[in-house]
Design a protein around this nucleic acid. Structure first.
Length: 293
DNA sequence: AACCTTCCCTGATGGC
DNA sequence: TGCCATCAGGGAAGGT
């Protein structure tokens, strides 16, 4: 489940390798991930130079000369680089001595929905098993890409992310705090893993109703969100099942998770048993002692 | 308007 | 061993 740190990790890996490269071809498989006639993708992109690659929330934006290609990875989406001069590999083998993930690239398979062939011979591969991902194509002149982002809340690392605004926008809302953190209109980029981790760090039970939170609790949540996201970026993202960076490597933040995926294990802070429940139809992990109801 | 539920999709997992 | 049900969840759409 690529969230902000995973998308940022992919961005940082891809950008230096593809910036300034001209596009040679874009084979695609006609999958439902395409939000346009998929044949238009190759037709329009052929010959254009990739000027820049940016991130907004969980979206990646490829800035070309005349178009923007915007990719959302959904649940299982992957964007990886492939160099035909190097050998491909399957699975996630770990180095037997160091335990570190070796860099490995993957050949296209039946879940690879498109490739962007670059002039230097390398390719960017988009693979998505569950096809919750989406690929958009916009003309750079008509500005219509804005509709995708119009309703998104502030980036957690931007100047727009202020305590004053955070508190005001919480207002007297009745929904559960975790559901609010997952709402991309409230904050952009938080998903299920980092919502649980942020609420653990803030010491707030995920099922609490926003209107009954104390101000100091809201302040702690305000700080915890960018804090856990930053740690996730530093660690290169979280790999539960599917996430790999642009070089096909797994992330490192799963080693630092305090609650997510730790049901039945001991809390590192107080030694009580981590619980799992459901909040807003999402699996939700918490420490019953560190996060009081 | 605010909030909640359903749906999309496939592979992994567990019960029998 | 095989078969079927269940689960994972981002975000749009539909319902209350």
């Amino acid at each position: 489940m690529p969230e902000l740190p995973e998308v940022e990790t992919i961005l940082r890996g891809l950008l230096p390798k593809i910036k300034g490269q001209r596009i040679n071809g874009v084979p695609e498989d006609g999958s439902k991930v395409f939000q346009m006639d998929p044949e238009l993708l190759g037709l329009h992109l052929l010959g254009q130079v990739i000027r820049d690659l940016r991130r907004r929330a969980k979206y990646l934006i490829f800035d070309l000369e005349r178009h923007r290609v915007i990719v959302h990875l959904g649940m299982t989406g992957q964007l990886t680089l492939r160099n035909p001069g190097k050998s491909d590999s399957d699975g996630f083998l770990r180095h037997p001595v160091t335990g570190l993930q070796r860099t490995r690239q993957h050949a296209p398979d039946r879940h690879t929905h498109f490739q962007i062939h670059l002039a230097n011979g390398t390719s960017v591969l988009f693979r998505d098993v569950r096809k919750f991902g989406k690929v958009y194509l916009f003309d750079v002149l008509d500005g219509s890409a804005g509709v995708l982002f119009a309703r998104l809340g502030p980036e957690p690392f931007s100047e727009d992310y202020t305590l004053k605004c955070f508190l005001e926008r919480m207002g007297t809302r009745k929904l559960r705090i975790k559901s609010l953190l997952l709402d991309q209109r409230f904050i952009a980029g938080v998903g299920n893993i980092y919502a649980d981790e942020a609420l653990f760090e803030a010491g707030v039970y995920p099922g609490r109703r926003v209107r009954y939170l104390r101000k100091y609790e809201k302040v702690r949540i305000f700080k915890a969100v960018p804090d856990v996201l930053r740690k996730g970026i530093v660690a290169g993202g979280t790999t539960i099942n599917d996430f790999v960076d642009s070089d096909g490597q797994v992330g490192g933040f799963q080693e630092q998770l305090n609650v997510y995926g730790r049901e039945g294990e001991r809390c590192y802070r107080c030694d009580s048993v981590i619980q799992k429940t459901v909040v807003g139809q999402r699996g939700t992990h918490y420490c019953p002692v560190c996060q009081k109801r």
